[in-house]
Design a protein around this nucleic acid. Structure first.
Length: 441
RNA sequence: GGAGGGUUGGCAGAGUGGACGAAUGCACCGCACUUGAAAUGCGGCAUGCUGGAAACAGCAUCGGAGGUUCGAAUCCUCCACCCUCCGCCA
């Protein structure tokens, strides 16, 4: 949710910004109209209420009864109006950052840097099929590591059984990621590499709930589109589509002292997605399933540190990918490819030799205060840094979330990049101690 | 699933129909005293909304939503959460 003052005072700027995100700028006008009505009615109602207080002090029954009727009527009107206004308000997405490229969809995303060399499979030591690397599904099926057919019978389309080495590699990624993100030295040096002197506090591991209430999901701006969410009607709960959904509300209705920031968390959970809008996309293999495991980081910072924190998150992602020796590139998503609550959205795309292209494996979303406003998570400034200006009753905190590993996609990337000419899969060096072997066959 | 108890400001905790946006203590902030600190004394200290350049004024908020009443933290209903006991369970 955007700041109401911004919407009132800089509506033209907001209109231009959200139009770039493919949202309807008329929403802002509609909001303005409803808000003006709301203000007028609020003033009228407050006057009546003040009168009612006076009347009740005088204990005047007849006049009080009459006035009460009027108040009830206006209260009903105000409530209806407020609902209408807020519905429009919630539809207005966050504003993109200055450096977000303007563009209609993912084709206008901009590559920031490319790291690592794709392996040359045509040379000696290439894959089995005459220098042409196989894709993850061919490899996994041949080795008996991925079984889609049985999963389809048991659960339907877009489910998979992973077995043997595929599971072991996934668990190794989990162990490795947690070891890195809780290691003060590694985290500190990544923070230092982002901006010298930047806070290098390690991540706190969390096992969050996998189901949540609609109202909280709404505060995270993640309830819509509802077709994408799994809902459990008997208890009116929603399955999370990412650990972000229950990590973000961890400090709902709290005011956090500035000295405690940043607060950094990492969680390993399944993610549930109906993939309603992606019929026919990525139907082979395990890149797009209804259920997948993911490690996610989430953090809470001061407003001025929000963007640095996002860059730091990307530095952690890059450290992990670099140490796995997987070629990747960093992309900044254009306005049309950003999520509604995002101000700045970066992706890591990993090289998949079997498909001969980079594919999204990670994202890093900077939300500014868009989620925190509705979650009511604030910063309490320490007096030393309190500057004048808007910081009266506490400011909203800034939030970041980012992928550490989408386990399935990362395992698939390892399959493709580490395949041998015999169709086996080598285990990345840093994972060998967790997997307990050097080759999966 | 059954029975009972609870939810009040940053924290603890009083308040069972009007004088309560809310006692008191702790914490916090300012000032005084002191060489400094402690202790002590005095003062301040919730949030949001509306109007206003501001001073300030008005309104709302005692877990949430409704209701009764001229008037609700206080009475009634429903919901959420916490605690205790019983049942069931990995």
């Amino acid at each position: 949710m955007l700041d109401i003052k911004l919407l009132r005072e800089e509506s033209e700027r907001v209109k231009k910004a959200i139009a770039a995100k493919n949202a309807d700028p008329k929403l802002v006008d509609e909001f303005g109209k409803l808000d003006a009505e709301w203000r007028a009615l609020t003033a009228e109602l407050d006057g009546l209420r003040a009168e009612q207080k006076k009347i009740s002090k005088e204990r005047n029954k007849e006049q009080g009864t009459r006035n009460k009727e009027e108040i009830k009527k206006l209260e009903g009107e105000l409530r209806a109006l407020e609902e209408k206004r807020d519905a429009v308000w919630q539809k207005i997405p966050n504003l993109p950052s200055e450096d977000t490229p303007v563009g209609k969809d993912e084709t206008t995303n901009k590559v920031i840097r490319v790291v690592g060399e794709p392996r040359d499979f045509s040379a000696k030591g290439g894959s089995a099929s005459g220098g042409k690397p196989k894709n993850h599904f061919e490899l996994g099926e041949a080795l008996g590591l991925i079984d889609i057919e049985t999963a389809a019978k048991v659960s339907g389309a877009r489910f998979a059984y992973l077995k043997g080495g595929a599971v072991e590699l996934g668990l190794a990624l989990v162990h490795y990621a947690f070891a890195i993100l809780t290691n003060p030295n590694v985290v500190r040096s990544s923070a230092e590499g982002t901006v010298p002197g930047y806070n290098g506090k390690p991540f706190v591991p969390v096992a969050p709930p996998l189901m949540m209430r609609a109202e909280v999901m709404q505060k995270m701006a993640r309830l819509e589109p509802k077709e994408e969410r799994y809902h459990i009607p008997s208890d009116d709960l929603y399955l999370i589509g990412s650990a972000e959904h229950t990590l973000g509300p961890l400090h709902m209705d709290e005011t956090i002292p500035e000295k405690d920031l940043p607060l950094r968390y990492v969680a390993f959970t399944p993610s549930f997605r109906r993939e309603a809008g992606s019929y026919g996309k990525d139907t082979r293999g395990i890149l797009r399933l209804h259920q997948f495991d993911k490690i996610e980081m989430e953090s809470f910072t001061t407003p001025e540190q929000g963007e640095t924190e996002q860059n730091f998150f990307v530095a952690m992602q890059e450290y992990l990918m670099w140490s796995l020796e997987l070629p990747y590139r960093v992309v900044i998503c254009s306005t049309g490819d950003q999520g509604d609550p995002d101000a700045r959205h970066l992706d890591l795309e990993t090289w998949f030799p079997g498909e001969s292209k980079y594919r999204e494996t990670h994202s890093a979303d900077y939300m500014t205060d868009y989620q925190a406003r509705r979650l009511n998570t604030k910063v309490k400034r320490s007096k030393t840094s309190a500057k004048g200006g808007s910081a009266s009753g506490g400011e909203f905190i800034h939030m970041n979330d980012a992928t550490v590993f989408a386990i399935g996609r990362t395992v698939a990337a390892i399959f493709e990049n580490y395949q041998t000419k015999e169709g086996k899969i080598e285990v990345p060096r840093v994972l060998q101690r967790y997997v307990g072997k050097k080759v999966i066959e």
